[in-house]
Computed example of a mutant assay.
Amino acid sequence: MCTEKSMLVVNGSFPGPVIRVQKGDTAYVTVHNNGTYNVTIHWHGVMQPRNPWSDGPEYVTQCPIPVGTSFTQEVILSEEEGTLWWHAHSDWTRATVHGAIIIEPADGSNYPFKKPDGEEIIVLADWFDGDVMTIMDTGLITGAAFTESTAFLINGLPGALYNCSASGMYTFYSTP
Rank of each mutant, 00 (worst) to 15 (best):
S109C: 05
A151K: 00
E58S: 14
P158A: 03
Y37K: 00
V39C: 04
S6M: 03
G168W: 00
E80K: 08
D55S: 12
G56V: 14
I141M: 05
H87K: 15
E120W: 09
K5N: 02
S174Y: 09
A106F: 00
P52R: 04
Y162K: 01
G35F: 03
K23F: 00
N33G: 02
N155T: 04
R20W: 14
S78P: 13
G68Y: 13
Y170L: 04
V123H: 08
G99E: 04
V29T: 15
T147V: 02
R50V: 14
P57T: 14
W53H: 14
G143R: 04
L77G: 13
S6D: 06
G45H: 14
N11T: 02
P52C: 11
M136W: 10
S149I: 02
F113N: 14
P105T: 08
D117P: 04
E79D: 11
N163L: 06
L124T: 07
G56F: 05
N51C: 14
V60P: 05
G45Q: 08
M169Q: 12
S78N: 11
N11M: 02
T61L: 08
Y173F: 11
V97T: 05
A106W: 00
G108W: 01
Y28S: 03
E58I: 06
Y28W: 12
G24W: 01
G108T: 12
V18H: 12
F71S: 13
A95C: 09
T93H: 08
P15W: 08
V9K: 01
